[in-house]
Computed example of a mutant assay.
Amino acid sequence: MVFPSLSVHTKKSYRLFAVDLLGFGKSPKPRDCMYTLRDHLQMIEKSVIDPFQLNSFHVVAHSMGCVIAVALAAKYSESVKSITLVAPPYFPSSKEGASLAALRQLAARRIWPPLLFGSALMSWYEHLGRCVCFLFCRNHKTWEQILKLLTRIRDLPFSVVDLTQHTHHSAWHTMHNIICGGAKLLDKYLDTLTISRVKIHIIQGNKDQVVPLECSYNMKMKAPYAELSIIPNADHKTVIFGREEEFTRNLENLLDSIDNRQED
């Protein structure tokens, strides 16, 4: 779990939902879907917001999920209490365009770190990406069994298991339609959140090699009232993993402070 050390108070006071995005994890992976921002939002609405009749909630997201989270918060600006964005890939409007800037920065032809290599492979070398998905993603259960035998670990970390639970179709279209396509819409969504005074908390590690640190600073400039926390000696992954307890405590304090203030 991402939050293994939640307090008893939080468990009693909140209903927590960990969402597998459409096309990833255990969520459906339709072949006739283009995995647009609208598709992802509709999945969250149909699986979480509508069934549980959520009319007041907080949103927490990491990396690519931040784009979807900002869009969701803007759509439900009267219901969302706060939004916590961890390493948000935000690129302000420019002459070259936010979408092109996002593609060049987040899918550059690099072999390190591994996440950027994967993004480059899926974005620029489509046939190779399809081969990887065919060999590994399509047969992820077989590879999981092999990994369990080699490591003698019965319960593999979810971050390892979920890594291959997608298809090339879902990964490729999500990459282009969310990170690149959604980049040009973020300014509008942030304007909506600013007008609605939705509490925004931005977190990023100062050693992040996947999402440039300037993304968080630029988002802070776009939404000046947002709180920005730069975590020393943390990268794109360890900004959460390896410091789960600290991350959880800070998040709980944030939620309590907002809810207590609204009650007063």
Rank of each mutant, 00 (worst) to 15 (best):
F241Y: 13
L16M: 12
S93M: 07
E126L: 13
A183T: 06
T192A: 05
R38S: 13
A102M: 08
N233G: 06
L147C: 07
R31F: 05
A171G: 05
Q209W: 08
Y225N: 11
K46A: 08
D259C: 14
R154E: 15
W172R: 15
T10D: 04
Q204D: 00
G205D: 03
F117V: 05
G181V: 04
E126H: 11
Q262F: 07
K199M: 07
D20L: 02
V198F: 03
R130V: 04
L116A: 11
K81V: 10
K222M: 13
W112V: 14
D50H: 13
I44C: 07
T142Y: 15
I202S: 01
E252P: 02
H62I: 01
I230G: 01
R249I: 09
N260Q: 12
I49A: 08
C33F: 05
I240E: 01
V70Y: 00
I153G: 05
D32K: 14
K148G: 04
K141L: 14
S7Q: 11
Q105H: 09
E96F: 02
E78I: 01
L16R: 11
A120C: 15
L147W: 08
V60L: 09
D32H: 13
L103A: 11
L54C: 08
M43L: 12
S229N: 10
Q53S: 15
V8Q: 15
A73C: 14
V59C: 02
C215M: 02
R110Q: 15
I178M: 03
T167P: 06
F52A: 10
D32C: 08
S82T: 05
V67G: 01
R15S: 13
S79D: 14
F3E: 04
A234W: 03
M221Q: 14
L185H: 13
A61H: 01
A120F: 14
I179K: 00
R249G: 02
C137Q: 05
S257E: 09
R261C: 13
G97I: 03
G205M: 06
A223D: 11
R243W: 03
G205W: 06
L115G: 05
F17Q: 03
K81E: 09
R15Y: 10
L190D: 07
M221S: 12
S27G: 10
P224F: 09
Q209L: 14
A98M: 06
V86S: 00
